[in-house]
């Protein structure tokens, strides 16, 4: 968590609810994440969103550790502001711009799960429509056409909006890195983990991550785990 994060407790509760696992809040000054199987960058307004969303958080000491975790193949999930931080850090391509309608939107939206081969979607059905809330003013995904084509080709567009909610190119709501172990998405799965929240569809994202880790958590090895091998196989 960073100064200005505000979804950190929600993320911890969501993870505990979904997996029963322990989850610790780690301050941005930490420089070692070796003890953890997965890292979640929560939503909020890190450093007041000054300059650009995520632009300052990117230089936090903990981000060097997040980068090492990603390089080691650990799961890294960036939610909302966490997604913005991951793009600013170049752990994910593209950028997130002001919504095309200039409104801050906070509502339950429908997403399409593009495929279930990623560590984050093992527990979903390919093509399934799920309901997860968004809560952002700057979530319009942008990248140049070549990057967008490559994301599509490699199966790295993991979640798409069913409606036009912010003007995101190709309705992109969440993308994977090349290796498939880093996911950034604007919607908040941690806000969809109980019936009273209006949806429980976020539970399975954390369950997927847990299953992936307990099954060995090896993406590069591909064939050995999971339903259909690693996302690195694309398609």
């Amino acid at each position: 968590m960073f100064p200005g994060s505000n979804c950190d407790e929600d993320a911890v509760k969501g993870i505990r609810t979904a997996t029963g696992d322990a989850a610790d809040l780690i301050w941005h000054t930490a420089d070692n994440l070796d003890a953890y199987d997965a890292v979640v960058l929560p939503g909020g307004f890190s450093y007041g969103d000054y300059l650009r969303c995520g632009a300052i958080a990117r230089f936090s000491p903990v981000m060097a550790a997040v980068r090492r975790a990603a390089e080691a193949g650990k799961l890294v999930l960036g939610i909302c502001n966490g997604f913005q931080i991951l793009t600013e850090s170049h752990l994910l391509p593209g950028a997130l711009l002001r919504n095309e309608h200039l409104q801050f939107r906070c509502e339950l939206v429908e997403l399409v799960v593009e495929h279930a081969r990623s560590p984050f979607t093992l527990a979903y059905q390919p093509g399934e429509v799920i309901r997860i809330p968004i809560s952002h003013g700057e979530g319009r995904y942008h990248a140049d056409e070549a990057v967008l084509d490559e994301l599509e080709r490699a199966g790295r567009v993991l979640f798409r909006y069913r409606q036009r909610v912010n003007g995101s190119l190709r309705d992109i709501a969440g993308i994977l890195n090349e290796r498939g172990n880093v996911l950034g998405l604007m919607p908040h799965p941690e806000r969809a983990v109980a019936a009273w929240m209006g949806s429980e569809d976020g539970l399975r994202m954390f369950e997927s991550m847990r299953r992936f880790v307990t099954d060995g958590g090896l993406l590069a090895a591909g064939a050995g785990h999971g339903a259909e091998g690693g996302v690195a196989h694309g398609g």
Binding site: L51, P93, A95, L97, H142
Partner: peptide, 8 residues
Amino acid sequence: RVLCNPVM
């Protein structure tokens, strides 16, 4: 490095 994000 900082002031401008060349992606956008």
